[in-house]
Simulated scan of single mutants.
Amino acid sequence: MRKLRSAFPWLILSALVIALDLYTKHLVQQAFVYGEHVPVTGFFDLVRYHNTGAAFSFLANASGWQHGFFTAVSTLASVVMVYLLVKHPQKKLFCLGLALVLGGALGNLYDRLTLGYVVDFLLFYYQQWAWPAFNVADSAICVGVGLLMLDSFKQPNA
């Protein structure tokens, strides 16, 4: 029970990521029609896109089987991440990375379950090249994975 309690701050961080992600997606859905672009700078637009695939629209054009697959993978990965947060709450960098990935995964999973797609709204580009549109959940996942990679290079305590 003590380990579960010590994992609580990490789970709160995941919940904050989910809340920020869902709130920003809600704002975009209220303010934009699908496909709309609002230029902010010469390299950044706010948009409203619907992603039926995974990261960077991977498998977005598949016949529909990917919805169940990504839902199952996200659910299983989330269970594993919660288990790891409970098991290793003292490993701060590791848990910070996991908490961000967990929050992002659950934010996108919520969209996938309730809408059938994930709302993306941040679009960076340079001339004719564009990075695929993304959202707060995707950002949290990327930062979390980076922190997990950084943590993997740390020397274990002898």
Rank of each mutant, 00 (worst) to 15 (best):
56 F>W: 14
69 F>P: 07
29 Q>Y: 06
18 I>M: 07
65 W>M: 09
60 A>V: 00
70 F>W: 06
25 K>L: 06
52 T>C: 08
45 D>Q: 10
18 I>Y: 00
29 Q>E: 15
50 H>Y: 13
72 A>M: 12
12 I>L: 09
32 F>C: 12
48 R>S: 13
36 E>R: 06
78 S>H: 04
28 V>G: 02
54 A>Y: 06
45 D>C: 01
38 V>M: 14
76 L>P: 08
52 T>V: 11
59 L>W: 05
38 V>H: 09
45 D>P: 04
13 L>R: 03
17 V>S: 00
80 V>G: 10
60 A>S: 15
11 L>F: 07
42 G>W: 07
70 F>E: 05
20 L>P: 02
73 V>A: 12
40 V>G: 02
71 T>A: 11
57 S>R: 01
22 L>K: 08
9 P>L: 03
39 P>D: 13
75 T>V: 14
43 F>V: 09
60 A>T: 03
61 N>Q: 14
27 L>E: 07
51 N>Y: 00
20 L>S: 10
42 G>A: 14
34 Y>R: 14
74 S>Y: 02
65 W>D: 11
76 L>I: 15
74 S>D: 09
81 M>V: 07
14 S>D: 02
83 Y>K: 04
76 L>G: 13
39 P>L: 09
32 F>L: 15
13 L>I: 10
83 Y>F: 15
81 M>F: 03
66 Q>D: 12
79 V>P: 06
19 A>E: 09
24 T>M: 10
44 F>H: 04
28 V>N: 00
36 E>W: 01
76 L>W: 11
37 H>E: 15
81 M>A: 08
50 H>M: 12
70 F>S: 01
